[in-house]
Design a protein around this nucleic acid. Structure first.
Length: 418
RNA sequence: GUGGGCGUAGCUCAGUUGGUUAGAGCGUCUGGUUGUGGCCCAGAAGGUCGUGGGUUCAAAUCCCAUCGCUUACCCCA
């Protein structure tokens, strides 16, 4: 049997109801906050991601689906969307059309990792990118959009973590201080963290190794290295979150894996979805656009994992998808009336009613059972004696009431069934 | 890449110290009088017990390998 690729999932009809509900909420909130949808290709030149996300990140160094096409170009299935949006922003000079571009997307992403709870090789994100302003009101708004969506999904057990990474100079000073602090304890660090000491010191901060965390006691804190402007920006964001009534925790150990972040970073976590608890991650990336060849433009955004969010929704039973039902089921009482059934069905469908009838030549009883299984609001019996008089029987499935309707009077049913 | 757990019907699972034709619930299908659902009742279909090898008189059950799923680490949404 041919099976789906490891880490990919079929979303079957029962499941799609959850996805549609989420999509509707996302679209609605994007409309409320006035973000415009953007769609970019599923693959890009590999160089976009290696330059945009950072060569040393795990995503680029070991997780990308990269292949050479027939023209010898190196292409990559997008592992995240920010680089693609920025590429489109630059390519189409969106920054010259509008001072501020507020964009959102919903799209599949691809990373070749070992699957686990809340992590897949093809997974889906929605997210926003607000490009063109360093205003802290926008940082707060971005967090607010994410928070509003989760709230509208009915999630309660979520936590916003907030930090600021400042500007590169401040971050570099902090990195050195942290390195100094930890190098004396180097031998005690976990193997992973020893490597991080060279590759990316910040990662030691959120190490899951208990002993690493003990060694971090009394370590320098990023917040102490922020300059006045960075601090002011950070404080403003916090003030605005308070006005927006968004509870948050300041977490100075929150560093994010992508190279392009500056200033504000945040995550929204759920404790109900396993180890991969970050539902949403994002922050400000003021240097990325220039890095990718555009004119220096500040920006801020987030990405949200749809699979993880739905996992949380199910764990919390935060919403129940609407019960599926149809308007009317047509029952073929006499075998030879197939054309008539099709004709009546066509009439109702052309009038925008959800109609179903039997395609399996089943008995009247079986057709009734099917109508019931489909939660049909009404049933129409076509055949027998009354049909020879040009009549059909309409039955209301909730109270069992039946009435005779003339075939040349079908429009009277339209007003009854919806 | 590394470690743990698990692979029996469409789904969720049972299968006792290895011992008759491998079971249940749900779902599906048919029927319970001539044209009427839900509840109920009766019956049916559906399984190479993941795959391959080994031990044994005998393997779903024990051993090995392999594949798959799952979970955690790294990292990330």
């Amino acid at each position: 049997m041919i099976k789906a690729i490891k880490g990919t999932n079929d979303i079957l009809p029962d499941e799609i109801q959850y996805w549609n509900h989420l999509t509707n909420i996302v679209l609605n909130q994007m409309n409320i906050y006035n973000y415009k949808e953007i769609r970019t290709p599923i693959f890009e030149q590999t160089e976009l991601f290696s330059r945009g996300i950072g060569d040393s990140t795990d995503i680029v160094s070991k997780e990308m689906y990269t292949f050479i096409d027939r023209s010898e170009n190196s292409l990559t299935l997008k592992p995240e969307m920010t680089a693609s949006v920025v590429r489109a922003f630059i390519e189409h000079s969106l920054g010259k059309q509008f001072g501020l571009n507020k964009l959102f997307y919903i799209s599949p992403m691809f990373r070749q990792e070992r699957p686990q709870a809340g992590r897949f090789r093809q997974f889906h994100q929605f997210g926003i990118e607000a490009i063109g302003s360093h205003n802290p009101y926008l940082d707060a708004e971005v967090i607010q959009v994410a928070f509003s969506i989760l709230q509208n999904l009915g999630l309660k057990d979520i936590e916003v973590n907030l930090n600021s990474l400042g500007i590169p100079e401040e971050r570099n000073k902090f990195a050195e201080a942290l390195k100094d602090f930890l190098s004396s304890k180097k031998n005690e660090l976990s193997e992973d963290s020893k490597n991080r000491l060279e590759s990316n010191v910040f990662r030691i901060l959120d190490s899951k190794n208990q002993h690493d965390q003990e060694l971090l006691a009394g370590s320098p804190s990023l917040i102490d290295f922020l300059g006045e402007e960075s601090l002011e920006h950070f404080n403003k964001v916090k003030e605005l979150l308070t006005i927006a009534k968004i509870p948050y925790s300041e977490n100075h150990k929150l560093v994010r894996g992508l190279d392009y972040y500056t200033h504000t970073t945040f995550e929204i976590l759920s404790s109900k979805v396993g180890a991969q608890s970050a539902l949403v991650g994002g922050g400000r990336y003021n240097l990325l656009i220039e890095q990718l060849g555009g004119t220096s433009t500040p920006a801020v955004g987030f990405a949200a994992g749809i699979e993880r969010i739905l996992l949380a929704c199910k764990a919390e039973e935060s919403f129940i998808p609407a019960k599926e039902e149809i308007d009317i089921y047509l029952i073929r009482v006499d075998k030879e009336l197939e054309n008539k059934i099709f004709e009546i069905g066509t009439y109702f469908r052309y009038n925008n009613r959800t109609v179903e009838f039997d395609y399996l030549s089943r008995s009247v009883k079986a057709q009734m059972r099917e109508a019931n299984r489909l939660n049909s609001k009404f049933v129409l019996f076509v055949g027998g004696e009354e049909f020879s008089k040009g009549e059909v029987q309409l039955k209301n499935m909730s109270d069992g009431e039946q009435q005779i309707v003339h075939l040349n009077n079908l429009d009277s049913i339209l007003s009854i069934i919806k």
